[in-house]
Design a protein around this nucleic acid. Structure first.
Lengths: 162, 162
DNA sequence: CCTTATTCGGATATCTTGTGTCCGATATAA
DNA sequence: TTATATCGGACACAAGATATCCGAATAAGG
């Protein structure tokens, strides 16, 4: 029940992309370097985000990844879904339909109570993630940055975008 | 992000135990047989539940597993925690604290926004699971059982308890 | 009290999934 | 047109989940 660390990596990467001017992106190398992460592995995760249409990829010199839509329309759930897939964490394999006490009078059209309870919990979890947009996170992060950090970051970005 | 199928197995097993008279249990073999599951693997999962004090184990002839407390005081979360552990699914490795733009003016005492959002979602998920008790599930399952099923199951149980 | 059968508990083997890297395909800029 | 930058998928490796077996402990029966 552990989530791939790719979620953490790409979530931070997307927040960085959200801080850039609209339409501007960064290559996977730069996204990895910003938090000193393995470049090749970050690239792999960004591929998943591109397949899920969370980011757009631009190949060739000067290319990279940029958000596929405004940061206010991308949620944490979009990122989780891109990396982890849309399947529920609890897998019901209908074991109730097998065993010595199973008989034809049983009705399996309704989902079992256990399955239903886990579905409800998962939906609540997803709803929380769908309620958080990149724009909100980006705003909160920016608010807590000192002028010094702003300057250093701006300088680093200018170098990468040059 | 998939949950161990041990959760499904033991959840169903606990519902069966909850249907028994208080203080009465079943060996792991019988719990597995009830849904035609691998006996040795079911036994391993029941061990985890015993370690977590969800069930009590009784060794030797006539022994087995029984609920460690009333079914109304055991929730689905107790079972998930026993099998999966209590760690959050999202692991924050504080990657924000490393990189070329990190500088001494930064303050990392507060958790990062991404981490906070995932924590909130996980807590909501757990709250849903903590709200569902074995007693409730057991009642719902029993209500939907036909007289025929009740008879067959009673007979099977009497054979196992003899 | 001793023997035997029963059941739990942990050590062990196998297999799927996640982690991590590399190189070819493709597009851009000069 | 060429050279460079970048993405994308194919390819190894490691970790965790899945599955099994055998010894330890306990209760029942003689």
């Amino acid at each position: 029940m552990k989530m791939s660390e790719g979620v953490e990596w790409t979530a931070h990467a997307c927040v960085l992309l959200a801080a850039l001017p609209p339409g501007i992106g960064l290559p996977a190398n730069a996204l990895a370097e910003f938090h000193r992460l393995a470049p090749a592995y970050m690239a792999k995760h960004m591929q998943a985000l591109a397949r899920a249409n969370v980011v757009e990829s631009v190949r060739g010199a000067g290319g990279g990844y940029r958000l596929a839509r405004p940061a206010s329309e991308i949620t944490l759930w979009d990122i989780v879904e891109a990396i982890e897939g849309e399947e529920h964490s609890f897998r019901c394999s209908e074991i109730r339909q097998d065993g010595p006490c199973v008989n034809p009078s049983m009705d399996f059209r309704r989902p079992c109570e256990i399955h239903a309870a886990f579905s409800k919990a998962e939906i609540a979890w997803r709803a929380e993630l769908k309620a958080v947009t990149l724009a909100e996170i980006c705003k909160d992060v920016a608010r807590r940055a000192t002028p010094q950090t702003r300057g250093i970051t701006r300088q680093w970005l200018e170098q990468k975008l040059a």
